[in-house]
Design a protein around this nucleic acid. Structure first.
Lengths: 67, 67
DNA sequence: ACAAAATGTAATATATAGTTGACATAATGT
DNA sequence: ACATTATGTCAACTATATATTACATTTTGT
């Protein structure tokens, strides 16, 4: 899995830290960190929560052309 | 969670059974069934695989306004 | 009505998503 | 240089996504 730089950028755009995003979506900082690092296969529910907080769509933050 | 009728419809559009979709995405029939029934919180990787096979986007099949 | 295929569903097992707590390093401000 | 905040990372734990096997019910075709 590749790093999720789109997520990192969207978070920066909202000026949120990993910890702030984690709290806003009801997850832990470590989980957000792992998702950004691309070492994770998060659940769709968490992905949706992140999208809502950051004002992005699933396609914008979590689509990947090749797996 | 609500039933995923968009997924069911997209599958019908391709004339695939749950078993065929399951095989195409490397999952089991029961998992597909549970997702359509809305009793599941699948991983983003499986969601992407389903989207690719059915020719739909994440937003089309897996977005939900309220959680 | 019958047979076959598709779907629903339950029990148990396994892999892994996500948590908790802790510490190390990098970045930022003063 | 120092203190503070943000990020990276690890180990151990808990929750749950997914598999496997099996059977029941519904749907579809003839």
């Amino acid at each position: 899995m590749a790093k999720n730089l789109k997520l990192k950028a969207a978070r920066a755009e909202k000026d949120m830290t990993q910890a702030q995003l984690a709290q806003a979506v009801g997850a832990t900082r470590q989980t957000i960190n792992a998702i950004e690092k691309g070492e994770y296969n998060p659940t769709i529910r968490l992905c949706r929560a992140i999208c809502r907080v950051l004002g992005k769509t699933l396609d914008e933050l979590f689509w990947e052309e090749e797996e």
